Computed example of a mutant assay.
Amino acid sequence: MQKPLVSIVTPCFNQADYLRETVESVMKSSYRPIEMIIVNDGSTDNSLEIAQELAREFKEIRVIDQPNSGVSVARNHGITKAEGEIILPLDGDDLISPNYIEEAVNILSKRPEVKVVFCDAVKFDEEGQKKWKLKSFSLSKLAKDNMIFSAALFWKKDAVAVGGFSEDMVMGREDWEFWIKMLKNGGEVVKLSFIGFFYRLTLMSKRKKTRTSKNKRARIDYLNKKHGDFFERELSGPLRFQRTWSKPYNKILRFLGKL
C-alpha cells in the first residue's frame, strides 16, 4: 500500500536565523514521502535567499514568495499548493522530532475517525527548555481555550472543507479558531505520548503572550459571531471574557431569564 505524501507547510517571516535548523529537523524525519513548502511572507531579512538555498540543497523543498500578508494567508497559500494528502503546518523557527510525522501518519491512516494528531511538546530558547503543559482534549475544553498547537497533522481535505485558516482573524489565536471549525461537528483527536514538537520562544512569540484586553475582546466577539452554535452547545451560551467562567455564568443568566 502506498504511503500518503505529507506536506509540511512553513510560513516564514524574518526567520533567517532559524530556518535552516527547522528544515534540517524535517529532513531528519523517519517518514517518507514528504514535501516541504516554505512560504516566504514578505520577509525583510534574507529568509528568501536562505529558503532558495535550502531548496537547492534538498529536493523535497519548494519555495513560494508572497507579499507580507500574515500567517493565515501564508499557511493557506501553502496548503493550496500542497500535493500531499496530509498537512503539517510548521513555523519557520520551530522543530520536530524524527519520529513525529511517522507516528502521526500511522494513526491517521489506520483510524479514519481521527481528524487531528498532535503530541507532547516543549518550549525552548537559548537558556533551556521546559515541557509545555497541554490540557487534554475535549470539545468543552476547546470551547474555553486551545490545547492543540498549530503544528499538528491533519488531512488536507478536512482543512479545505472548512475554508482553511480564517484570514480575517487578525487579532491572534487563529489556530484555535481553525481547530474549532474543523472539530465542532465531529472527528476525534489523538495526542501522541512523546515529545515531538519544539516551540521556540523568541521576542516575537513572547510578545504574543501579552496581547491586550482589546485584542482579547475582539477575538471573543469574532468567535461568538462565527461559532455561536458551538458555544451554545458546549457553554450554554456565548464565550465570555473570563473564559473559564463562561458556562456557569451563562447558566445563572439563563436561570434569571437574562439569556
Rank of each mutant, 00 (worst) to 15 (best):
F231Y: 02
K208D: 15
H227L: 04
F194Q: 01
G186S: 04
K216A: 04
S205K: 09
F231N: 00
K225P: 04
I195Y: 12
R219H: 13
N215F: 12
E234K: 04
S205C: 05
W179F: 13
D229Y: 08
F178A: 03
R219C: 09
G228E: 03
N185A: 13
R217V: 11
L235M: 12
G237I: 05
R200W: 05
G172C: 11
L239G: 03
V189Q: 03
D221F: 06
K209T: 13
L201V: 08
T210G: 08
S236Q: 14
F230T: 02
Q242W: 15
K209A: 13
G186Y: 07
G196S: 11
I220E: 07
E232Y: 08
L235Y: 12
M204S: 11
N185W: 14
R233P: 00
E232G: 08
D175A: 00
E232F: 04
N215G: 07
F198M: 01
K184V: 04
K225V: 09
R217G: 00
I180C: 02
F198A: 06
G228P: 04
L203F: 09
S193H: 12
R173F: 07
I220C: 11
K208Q: 15
N215P: 10
E188F: 03
R233L: 03
R207I: 12
K226G: 05
R207Y: 08
G186T: 06
K191T: 10
K216N: 06
R207S: 11
K206F: 01
T212V: 04
R240Q: 13
S205A: 02
M204L: 08
T212G: 09
D229P: 03
K184A: 06
L223I: 09
S236I: 06
R211V: 12
V190I: 12
K208T: 13
F230N: 00
S193W: 12
N185D: 12
K208A: 15
N215T: 14
A218M: 12
R233G: 05
S213V: 14
M204F: 13
K206V: 02
F230Y: 07
L239Y: 06
N215S: 15
L183H: 05
F194R: 08
Q242C: 15
E234Y: 05
M182A: 10
M171I: 10
E234V: 07
M204A: 10
E177M: 10
D221M: 06
F230K: 01
